[in-house]
Design a binder for these strands. Structure first.
Lengths: 202, 202
DNA sequence: CATACTCTAGACCGGTTGGTATAATTTTGG
DNA sequence: CCAAAATTATACCAACCGGTCTAGAGTATG
């Protein structure tokens, strides 16, 4: 069975893309079927619990895409400030191309389902927590202490999410680029202040 | 006609609330009708162009609510840092109550319609720009120079939007409170750096 | 080859969607 | 009071929604 699971993967990839672009409520199964080329029977064969099950797996795929994309851009730089600025500028470049926005943001599906689909809300919460952790880990690798890294982790997660929404709305990478600079400054200053605090203790 | 325009206002208020809570695609006209008590005929009488027209007016109402709510909290404080921290803590308190989230955020309707409803996207872009301007104006009132105020304006807009999404997803005001503190620090440091730059020039 | 299992394919279903049409009711102003 | 205008009320519509069902095609194995 050379193509085993291929239909399932195609459905999932199409759904992931469409859910990120239009949201859960704005994406119908028929659109997923058309754009993936998968037969309707296969949707329920592979995802017996229906649309919600597809969405939960799509959120999982978004998580993987976002974490991997960020990891790739955030490591191997001279400082946290440089790393996060580089990452956000890469995300901005994707918006400029107006191309596929997979793996950039989960804010849409998170906020639209928060009051109406508890399982999806919970899945998104877990992804956001993973993103916060990733950011905090990266900051610690660049020398931040744990407490500050954690507070900055959640702040960075929010900033990136908010910046993506602005760029999506403006259909332009410019908001992300401007916010990348401010995030860079924020990180530089935070690290300087941490340095002073450590010197002060000695 | 003592109640002139009352039906129209009730429809609009209900729609504004529901669009903010569930988004545009997640809110059907029948739900607006039920929850507002308005007759279906009146929907098309008052909003002849249908759902999109309601949404455009709802976005306008959201704009008013957000701008007024922020104005009320952001003025009359000792510093920008204190003002924005106070504002975000008030927003957080609303999330803690799990009550009506009107006038807190437009990120959901903005992102879900960005690729599919150009008029709504445009309306949301204008609201975000107004929010940025408001934030920049407030910062200038507290002593920031124009250029820095504008860069911080867009950054604050993104941070608030992102923080609201996290709080919506976590169903908890805590993300907002934590980010309020980081925003306060960011503003303090930005103002100190601006002070040094001015001293350096003299 | 036969059999069992996996997977596809697409018809079908009841319910919901946004919108239309028009009669009935209410309001307004002379 | 009455006519005209404003507004309500509700039946109706085609299209779309997520989900069910079942025949049949494809694959693996003995």
């Amino acid at each position: 069975m050379k193509e085993k699971h291929n239909t399932r993967e195609v459905i999932l990839q199409t759904a992931t893309r469409l859910f990120q672009r239009q949201g859960y409520n704005g994406t119908g199964l028929n659109q997923i079927i058309e754009e993936s080329g998968a037969p309707k029977g296969s949707i329920y064969y592979h995802f017996p619990n229906g649309k919600e099950e597809i969405a939960i797996e799509a959120i999982s795929m978004m998580r993987k895409l976002v974490l991997e994309g960020a990891e790739k851009d955030l490591t191997g730089k001279d400082s946290a400030a440089e790393a996060f600025e580089y990452y956000l500028n890469n995300v901005a470049a994707i918006f400029d191309l107006k191309s596929c926005i997979d793996g950039l943001s989960i804010g849409l599906i998170a906020s639209e389902t928060a009051f109406t689909h508890e399982q999806l809300r919970y899945s998104c919460e877990m992804v956001f927590k993973d993103l916060q952790s990733q950011h905090a880990q990266i900051l610690m690798q660049y020398g931040f202490d744990r407490e500050q890294a954690e507070e900055l982790g959640i702040t960075i997660t929010a900033m990136i999410e908010g910046a993506c929404i602005l760029s999506i709305t403006y259909q332009d990478g410019n908001p992300l680029r401007r916010i990348a600079k401010q995030l860079s400054l924020l990180l530089k200053r935070s690290q300087e202040t941490q340095g002073e605090k450590q010197n002060g203790n000695e």
